[in-house]
Structure formats: structure tokens, C-alpha cells
Design a protein around this nucleic acid. Structure first.
Lengths: 98, 98
DNA sequence: TTATATATATCGGTCATCCAATATGTGTTA
DNA sequence: TAACACATATTGGATGACCGATATATATAA
């Protein structure tokens, strides 16, 4: 994800946001997105996104037995702060009822 | 835009939302997006998106001299209602501070 | 009429999102 | 050990978002 939050990169933005709450592994991320959106992204969606975030140094990995816990780096936190601001400015009134 | 609001289609969703406030032409849409996001989408972004919404019967056109006023059809209003619900469910806590 | 400004539209190329299918890795169970 | 379940990963193909460049249309100014 570029840190300027265009309309591409919304999945990466959401993942970054969720990881800022607590570290999660890939399946937990998919489950949480299903809880929010109603549809569960396939592995072919979720892992490439995580790979991109890792290559951008926004998330780091920690293997824990069978799973890998993803969490934000400090760069990831910075990027999220900026992206969140633009996201909110772009969509505020969609939420505020109007 | 499909009415199920995945992460692709966020531009079309935003346009649909803005048009639900008031009819606008292409440049006004681009200007309003700039006001929200800070960056102005190029014509090569905005007009193909409008074309897609028109082909989905979500917006209709009305030429007014030099410009074309876009507004929602009733199908567009229905699609927006559903997409808005999913969007809010997906991103609520991004806004609510937490 | 010609020139200018603005709005609309298309094209080519890149990147992000998405799924289905497939493959590999890891831990548990038989 | 082998079998199984689950997590992780990659590939191919489709669609959407994006820009820069270019083209066309419409209205106004010179």
C-alpha cells in the first residue's frame, strides 16, 4: 500500500488497521474480514496482500507453531496514521448518517 | 460496481454516494473528490467510472449546455443503500476513534 | 470565423483486488 | 511412521482504479 490511500489499497488499509488492534495470523485476518463484510476473502487474496505489506516494511512476522502472527512495524503505524486521516476525510459523511 | 461492495469499486461507491447528495457533472465530481482526498482524479479515472455506473443503470445523464449532469436512478439508490450498509459494517471503528 | 477554455471520452500500461485451483509447510492423530 | 487438518503461499485470469496523453465536443471570446 502506498501511504497516500487511493481507492486501490483499501484491503491493505483495512488489514493494517485490524493489525493495529492486535497481532493476527492470516486465517484470523480472513475471519475478521468476513465478520465485517459478510464475505470471506480467499487465501489468494489475503496472502499476496500480506506479502505486499511485508515488502513495504509495514508489517513484520513472527512464527508461532503452525501459524504466523503479523503485527505492525513503526513504519506501518506511521503509514496507518496518515492513511486513516485521508480515509476519514474522504468518507466521513458516509458514516455520520449524512 | 457490483452491489456487494468489495474493496474494488470504492471509487464507484464514493461517486454514487456523492451523487445521492446532489446531481453533478464530471468535473464537479473530480473537484469534490479532490476536496475530500487531497488529490484530484484524472479524466481517465473519472469518466470510465461514470461509464460503468451508467452501463449498470445506476446513474443517468442529462446534458446541460457544455456539461452533463449525472444523477442516480432508482436502481442506483437501491445499490447505494446496500453498499453503504456493508461499507459501514466493514469500517465503523476506523471512524469511531476506536 | 478562428482561437481559447473547459468538459467529456478513449487508449495503453501499471498496480491492487479478487477467486479457483494447486502446492507446500507444520502440527496432531491414528 | 502415515494420514489428516489446517495455515501459508503461488499462479492464472478477470475486473477496477489510476495516470498521462490524446481526441472530441461545446460554449465563449477575439
Amino acid at each position: 500500500m502506498r501511504d497516500d490511500c487511493d481507492m486501490r489499497g483499501m484491503l491493505s488499509f483495512l488489514i493494517l488497521f485490524m493489525l493495529s488492534k492486535k497481532p493476527m495470523n492470516g486465517s484470523e485476518i480472513a475471519d475478521e474480514i468476513e465478520r465485517r463484510k459478510g464475505t470471506k476473502p480467499s487465501p489468494g487474496t489475503i496472502y499476496p496482500a500480506l506479502k505486499g505489506l511485508k515488502e513495504a516494511n509495514f508489517v513484520k512476522e513472527k512464527r508461532e507453531g503452525k501459524t504466523i502472527a503479523y503485527s505492525l512495524t513503526s513504519e506501518g503505524k506511521d503509514a496507518l496514521r496518515i492513511a486513516k486521516q485521508r480515509f476519514c476525510a474522504t468518507f466521513t459523511d458516509v458514516f455520520s448518517g449524512k
